[in-house]
Simulated scan of single mutants.
Amino acid sequence: MRTETALRREESDEHCLSTAEAEACLAGARWRRFLVIGDEVADGRGEPAEGYGRDGWADRVAGSLRRVQPGLAYLNLGRKGRLAAEIRSRQLGRVLEFKPDLTALTCCGSELLRDPFDADTVEGEFDRVVAPLRDNGGDVLLLNWFDITRYGPGTDEETERLRIRLRELAERKQAVALRHGAIYVNLAAHAAAADRNVYGADGSTPTMRGHAIAAASVIRGLGVHLAGAADERR
Rank of each mutant, 00 (worst) to 15 (best):
A215G: 03
A29I: 06
R134H: 10
L143E: 03
T159M: 13
A215T: 01
V176F: 11
V41T: 06
L142V: 12
T103W: 13
R88C: 03
C108N: 06
R134V: 15
E47M: 10
I37S: 05
L105W: 13
T121L: 15
D156L: 02
R2A: 15
L178N: 15
L166E: 00
A216H: 00
N144E: 13
E21T: 01
G154A: 11
D156T: 12
A170W: 12
V95N: 02
R165G: 10
R2I: 14
E123L: 11
L83D: 04
G203D: 11
L96E: 13
T207A: 07
R163H: 15
G38Q: 05
V68M: 02
F146K: 06
F117V: 14
G124K: 10
D147I: 01
D101R: 04
V61L: 02
G124C: 07
G138L: 07
Y52L: 09
F117L: 09
E11V: 15
A189M: 10
D147R: 04
R82Y: 11
A85R: 15
G221S: 05
L65V: 02
T5D: 14
A170V: 10
G181A: 09
A189F: 01
D120K: 13
G181R: 09
E111Q: 12
G38F: 12
V130S: 09
E111R: 04
V198W: 07
P206N: 10
S89Q: 13
G181Y: 03
R134F: 07
E168M: 15
F126T: 01
V95D: 03
G46Q: 05
G137R: 02
P132Y: 04
H190W: 07
E157K: 13
E171H: 05
A194F: 08
A42D: 02
A175M: 09
T121K: 14
S64M: 05
I213R: 04
A131F: 02
D13T: 11
E4I: 11
N186R: 12
L162P: 02
N76R: 09
Q91G: 01
S89E: 15
L169K: 05
R128E: 15
E11R: 14
E160I: 01
Y52D: 06
T207V: 11
A191V: 07
E168S: 14
E111M: 06
F34A: 10
Y52C: 07
L141G: 09
R196K: 13
D120N: 13
D202K: 12
A24L: 10
Y74N: 03
Y74W: 14
T207Q: 07
T19R: 13
A214P: 00
F126S: 00
A229S: 15
R8S: 12
N136M: 11
G71H: 11
E158M: 06
R209S: 01
A230M: 14
L178P: 01
L26I: 01
V61E: 00
D39V: 03
G210C: 03
A193K: 04
W31C: 09
Y74S: 11
T149N: 09
R165A: 11
T5I: 14
M1Q: 02
A29Y: 02
G63S: 07
L17K: 00
R179P: 12
T155E: 07
C108K: 07
E23T: 01
V61S: 02
